[in-house]
Design a protein around this nucleic acid. Sequence first.
RNA 1: GGGAUCGUGGCGGAAUGGUAGACGCUACGGACUUAAAAUCCGUUGUUCGCAAGAACGUGAGGGUUCGAGUCCCUCCGAUCCCACCA
Length: 866
Amino acid sequence: MDARYNPQAIETKWQAHWRETGLDRTPELSEGIRKFYALSMFPYPSGRLHMGHVRNYSITDVIARHKRMQGYAVLHPMGWDAFGLPAENAAIDRGIPPAKWTYENIAQMRDQLQRLGLSYDWEREVTSCSPDYYKWTQWIFLQFLAAGLAYQKEAAVNWDPVDQTVLANEQVDAEGRSWRSGALVEKRMLKQWFLKITDYADQLLADLEKLPGWPERVRTMQENWIGQSTGAKVVFKSESGDELPVFTTRPDTLWGATFMVLSPEHPLVERLTTPEQAEAVKTYQAQAAAQSEIDRTAEDREKTGVWTGSFAINPVNGEKIPIWIADYVLMGYGTGAIMAVPAHDQRDFEFARKFGIPIKLVVQPPDESVTSAADLQAAWAGEGVMIHSGPLDGIPAGKGPGQSVEKAIAWLEEQGLGEKQINYRLRDWLISRQRYWGCPIPVIHCPNCGIVPVPEADLPVILPEEVELSGRGGSPLAQMEDWVNVKCPTCGTEARRETDTMDTFICSSWYFLRFSDARNDKEIFRKDQVNGWLPVDQYVGGIEHAILHLLYSRFFTKVLRDRGLLDFDEPFLRLLTQGMVQGLTYFNPNKSGKDKWIPAALIKDPDNPVDPETGEKLEKIYATMSKSKGNGVDPEEVLANYGADTARMFILFKAPPEKDLEWDDADVEGQFRFLNRVWRQVHEFVEQAHFQDLLTSEIAVGSLSKPEKDLRRAVHTAIKEISDDIEEGYQFNTAISELMKLSNALNESGLLQSPVYADGIRTLVLLMAPFAPHIAEELWQALGGTGSVHQQSWPSYDPAALIADTVTIVIQVNGKLRGSFEAPSEVTQEEQEQLALASEVAQKYLDGATPKKVIVVPKKLVNFVV
RNA sequence: GGGAUCGUGGCGGAAUGGUAGACGCUACGGACUUAAAAUCCGUUGUUCGCAAGAACGUGAGGGUUCGAGUCCCUCCGAUCCCACCA
């Protein structure tokens, strides 16, 4: 064994050895085996790993390694979310074909992952842009189509009028201009594909309760996103007899409706507009259409709108109320039309105020000074009593049982005027992308047969190579005439392929299922494999995927379940959202925009940071690593300087996994020091001629010296604490601090020649194995261990070894700490109290008086109340 | 506006309602060295004190409790998500 810790040498050596011996291969599932599926969100192959990746994968790797040592059959795979815009950009900017660019990046990143010592089963690697994977993505699409869950409809896209191309949202800047041409982006209506996720809204919401292993805030975010609200559908009629259904969560305020508002895009607007109002309405509609999403949803916007000229009849009281259009009503939610109750809705209130529409109070606020709508300064939305509301008069207003909303719904249903309805904010998922580097939608448009799915036998629909990518002109695939023109599989006439590709979120909505049977070329996966390995026991990834990716994956799982392909409801049992990795940077508070960031490298004196250009004082801050801030740390650099084990240990020790982590070179250094210390410790031990005997000799538990007993207790405490830290919430930071404590205890014991010490050294190496796999393996071999350290059983502790001969009893007087004493660990409550009473401290503070009350916590403390 | 999470030394962070600050970083002092690095040993919440020790201390204010960083209420501040969603 080398005297010096040389991380690069041992890491390369062991990585090669593990690969050759197939250490990380997934075992076969078998009867009675305990399985564990540990998964990190698969990365986009940008070409270079960043610290966020390192953190994500280190967390999962510790979990996987620990579970293997506990005897679980572990599935720990890795893959590539490989379709997407950056590959197309590379093609446009540098003329590299997207496939070439992507596969080269994958090769680089795979190499980086391997050098981090991550224990993936590379035989199960999946790549979403590879035909053997996207064949099944297309197959799933056909399943959706067959189930009636995929459909086409007109929807707006971002259109660049200069380059004549559709833009992704990311290609449109904050001002609504194209990133490439700088032209103002227009909204253009195109027929596009949607998945009916709304059919599953109720299940997606209800099943969140089956996920106690998810962070509360992710569940809440999904809940918000699905956005369930309960209310009623009420049908208003225009004077001319057109039906105008509205959705309201407060049907009890129907008697206070003084106008109606339709969304400018509402299909009935044209019919309802009178000739006198036609011009104003047209103008308003045009304005609304031209507005970007950002403008339309901007905060504190003043209400705008136009009267259509016609009226509706309020079904509950026959009142005639004007019908307006306004952009604060959204076509995509509810029915695109609302009844407006200005007295009890802030938006309606503002609108009515501005346009002089009457405001009618139907809930009496408890404040008696408010006797009419004229007194209202803002819409009243609190508790009160119903007034001017026919059958509801006198009933307490509110959504609770027996309150006005419930009564109103019952009454409406009785009268046949409306019914209870549950509405969701969730919209159907627009999956069409007018892009090249994505999974082709396996559909053929036939002039005779309409939409014809590509027959299963013809899958995959291969993405054509040699495509011209310029970022201009229409959809790239539409220009590939040879590819586009096909015969209809049903009737044989000339037909055209669908030229849209799928949103890449589709590809990532099922990859975790494919890992269960990744090399299967006959079917998407065998049912016994997917049911055996799934659900994922621990999923780890960034909070940025808290909504879309996780929601879509849950949706896919439920649809595939309903198609009979698998037997579970939820794909991810437990979820850990890891915090960001932040880097030190400086900013000039007098500057704004990108210019304000000054990379730490440009700071000469960290104690007094100044702007190198202007000499102004700078402020120090930790922020998410990014190019523009110049505060990124390249994992390669850390690997080169300290090795993978130090990088992993640092990142796991610095903060709990869910919290943001501040990168600090001094702390990295500290971690490297610790590994060196352990290295020397083991080295010193094995330099003893008879160290093998010490390792194999039985520990005579009954006849240990006091220091030996103490050391043995430290060893077993470490096993307990580290096991608990890993199992109860992945507290790796405290687990590593326990490793340090054990190392310190061994050091301070001076018992180099005791079997207890030998056992401690061996235990330390075993406990380190999941965190720092290479050094642990090297030291394991130095100790003469057989097999790989990663194939050893996780150590277990002897509860008896945790008990000390004496315990420290704390003395409190009136709950205030006043002293402590040592007592034998088998002390009884009475003895403990007597000992405390007799102690000097108690004598001093009690001063002979008898305590009013004595609280005794066995083996912990005695509190005298005087 | 709605919701979620969180406020602890110089810093990152520990603390099943029971000795607040584990573990680490930084800083300071010492040993080794011709010297430096590395390593090792100390000290390191604040204030008072030569010391023994004492007082204060987990964003602020209340409450529950023998005892509160931890539980409850009010407020202040930070971060994140959603948001003209009827």
